[in-house]
Amino acid sequence: MTATIERGSATAPVNSPKKAPARKRPGGFLGSSNGKKVVMAVTGAVMVLFLVAHMLGNLKIFFGRDSFNEYAHALRTLLEPIAPYRTLLTILEIVLVVSVVMHMWAAISLSRRASHARPVKYVAKKSQANGYATHIMRFGGVTILLFLIWHLLDLTFGVVNPEGVNSAPADRMISGFDASRWWVTLIYVVAVVMVGLHLRHGVWSAFQTLGWANRNRYRALRVTAAALSLVLVVGFLAPPLAITFGVIK
């Protein structure tokens, strides 16, 4: 007589065969994860091009207050008298607001999708890809948004600027970064470095998303992204630091 040992089933319980999950999601290109990534890449590219122009404009402060003010005025009177005052600037502002909103929409949507995809977290998780910049993209994005709000209140609307709104742009800039307001400069330094880190991953990532990257181009793309980030960080930080340390008066 053979003894039988009761040990439960020898095989693991098998899940009942299920159909492809009918997940509710907006159909079409913009509803897909890839589509949202394309939105991020394209709107990101618009913002990067804007940043390059913005940085070049800022550097005008090194040629004196008048030079900077004339540049600010020229932005508003471009295309005049064919088009009314501020036409081009208004168009640019609309494009930028749409880009920022769509970039955020896609980012939030993809983050939510990602958190749904991993409901149970790992007890231990170790990153294998070297990429500090890569892993702080979402945190960096939020930081940049908060900074953007401060930046607009400071230098565009003049609400938190000592010169107020009815002042020359150069005066707002130079008073805003006065040595006595060193903490404002500090905010800018932190935020601009964050922008740099965001772009270090963002720029090459956009090429990958749009399908323009391949193994022969990765190195060049990463170097370009790092170089562009560095140029932007230096270019954006030069004026505030120069003002705070009294180089520009």
Partner: peptide, 19 residues
Amino acid sequence: VDQMDAEGFGGCTNTGECT
């Protein structure tokens, strides 16, 4: 790609952890 989305997988953020 649409099936991948329908299954509930997340989107790619090009982190390179996979490779």
